[in-house]
Design a protein around this nucleic acid. Sequence first.
DNA 1: CGAGTGGTTGAAGAGTGTCAAACAGTGTGG
DNA 2: CCACACTGTTTGACACTCTTCAACCACTCG
Lengths: 260, 260
Amino acid sequence: MKKQYVNDSFKEFVSTLPLLEGLCAQDMEALLRVAHHRDYKKGEYIYRQGEDADRLSIIRSGWVRLYRSNLDGEEGVAQLHTKATVLGEPVILPNSQKNFFSAQAISRAQLINIPGAAVREITRRNPVVLSRMMQGLIRKMDDMYVESEHMTLMSAPQRVACLILRLSAHMVGKGGTFTFPYDKSLAAAQLCMKRETLSRALSGLKTYGVEIQASEITIDNFAQLSAFSCARCSLNTECAGARCSSYPVRGGAESCGLIA
Amino acid sequence: MKKQYVNDSFKEFVSTLPLLEGLCAQDMEALLRVAHHRDYKKGEYIYRQGEDADRLSIIRSGWVRLYRSNLDGEEGVAQLHTKATVLGEPVILPNSQKNFFSAQAISRAQLINIPGAAVREITRRNPVVLSRMMQGLIRKMDDMYVESEHMTLMSAPQRVACLILRLSAHMVGKGGTFTFPYDKSLAAAQLCMKRETLSRALSGLKTYGVEIQASEITIDNFAQLSAFSCARCSLNTECAGARCSSYPVRGGAESCGLIA
DNA sequence: CGAGTGGTTGAAGAGTGTCAAACAGTGTGG
DNA sequence: CCACACTGTTTGACACTCTTCAACCACTCG
């Protein structure tokens, strides 16, 4: 691998991860010695489908896509993850595992990699960490389920609206402008639709006060767009993207980490 | 709840669960004292979306569907589970959780229910059980991903063929007849398609040597059907349903338990 | 400037969904 | 034993969304 930063910022990021909260000083020390920071260029692979799973990765910044491809090289769905997401959970399993997904940086991305042996040692000594990983997994499962649900219950424009609402979940106020954080083709794969469909759906959202200027997206009124998008979703207000009455519980770009 | 069987068959089932393998006699005793067997009638609910998650359930026989519904009562995808599947994993988390799904028996079903407190105690004393639950969860995640992948890459007839191949994964020989284990409408929901589409897709499979007689399904040649169904799936031969060259690794009706 | 990448737009078609009606199987009560 | 209701399934006709294929546009980088 590459360089191993043991500077303050790295230490601080690792030691404030919800996943690792409550580790004793000794365990944290040991962890910091083996954890590696690494910078990935856009397009670079963190690991590939079928390789041995040998480390846990935590996203510090940037975006990573998880996907699989078949023999023809076709790719189905993509899961896109960002800050604080834990990748490579299978590494904690005793019998050595293969990576089910390929993980690729789709923007410049910074990750913390922790060797499998260290992860297993930490979780053995601190079952609470295992339990937090489990919580993260359950969250991912639920998110995946919701994505499938959207496929059957919602139209393409509604799913696109849902996505931009989630991407702007951290924004306060009635409306606003933000920059699409990754290629639209990837967003299309994430939503299980074609590039062209995404493009058309986005321009179709003009009706609901959405303005597109290349990768600059302006939403006039979050609540109005939610009313269109979230109507048939089973999460209702339990979604960071939904701007109806009450507020975030799950999902959303900023809240997808392992928050206890 | 209902009656608590502490007969030999119940004991044997619990003590041979891969999930609980390696529990010391004392822990197993304690577990058997609090674990309940329960019979569910077709249609009966095991738990409902939004209720407090208070127990772990393990399917002993029959089929259970997990699903969510929105405010209009519309239901999206359904996950269908059978023998040896563990349900309600969130119960192991320290902060009390709500059920994300509703779980409903869709045939007569026998389940083992273990109170949350007992589960947390067992996993605290035996982290290996936690790790096995994690393995099960990872498996479920992977299965869900594959299902989404199928949605984008495969046609309705291909997905239906995939399902009947998985349902017949335990059968040996070139082909054979089996009984569809649950309502076709449920299968449609499982595959994210409408009843009508499933019906048409099934009759369309005649071309590939599939004969339908109400709920009796005859597949002339598993390999031939696989060639049609599995062509674009990223699992290739790593699927219990696929009958190509090599054999089961994941998925399939009979192998969806927590096998280490 | 030309090549390369990613995005948009248009026209046409396939595949599902929708709606309505008919059908089959089962259980119920007279 | 038959009429009846009830549930789940099949079939047909039709509408519509999304994909497909193609061309074109915008931007970046050599």
